[in-house]
Amino acid sequence: MIALQGVSVGYRLVEERRRSFQAHVINYIKGRRVKRQTLWALRDISLEIGLGDSLGIIGPNGAGKSTLLKVVSGVIKPAEGRVNVGGKAAPLIELAAGFDDELTGRENIFLNASILGFSRRDIEQRFDRIVDFSELRDFIDTPLKNYSSGMTARLAFSVATEVDPDILIIDEVLAVGDAHFRQKSKERIREFKDRGVIILFVSHDMEQVRSLCNKVLWLDHGRTRMQGGPEEVIAEYEKEVTGDGAVRAFR
């Protein structure tokens, strides 16, 4: 279960970001107040997702889609509003972020699974299943730097989906690797859906959103533009993007 109530996330933009200590001190001495401006990445978002729901999140770049995923996964604490997330969230965001090139596939499985909060016993139990799904048994003791990018992605996908999440968070990457593995990973996500796992899916590919999601949230400049069934929301969104929006862009 995921419930968000009036959630807002603000990035405080300093007019010119003072990363240097010196600049900070000088300005402090001169008594110049730093002008701050808040950019709301998310503004007053409320939503409720229950078991078995798959929510597609759509909208133009910079609409706050990824920020919303970060709020749900706990990376960002919102400035306002309440977040209630029941269950374990597994992010399929940038799958290989937790990998280390110098370590072997085996070592990386342990590292990456522990990043997701697993104990050693849990990882050992799942280890064979992870390796089998990735089809990388022959390379499991090879350092990751000798893997192809497809192989790395396969390994990452296998770890992230072998963790029995209650909530699966997918940012763009739905399928990785070659055609054969793509098919496998799509099937696995379907299985999750059938099992009642909540799926949050950010994508620009409306076809994928239609086929996977039963609810769609359209974000625009951090605000909810529309929320509802996939057909109606996507229809409205496409109307704006292709029809009206394109004309406006041409002028």
Partner: peptide, 13 residues
Amino acid sequence: ELLRNLVLRDVKI
């Protein structure tokens, strides 16, 4: 477990 793996990684690398 993450702490253990991070330390192991440092030492190994």
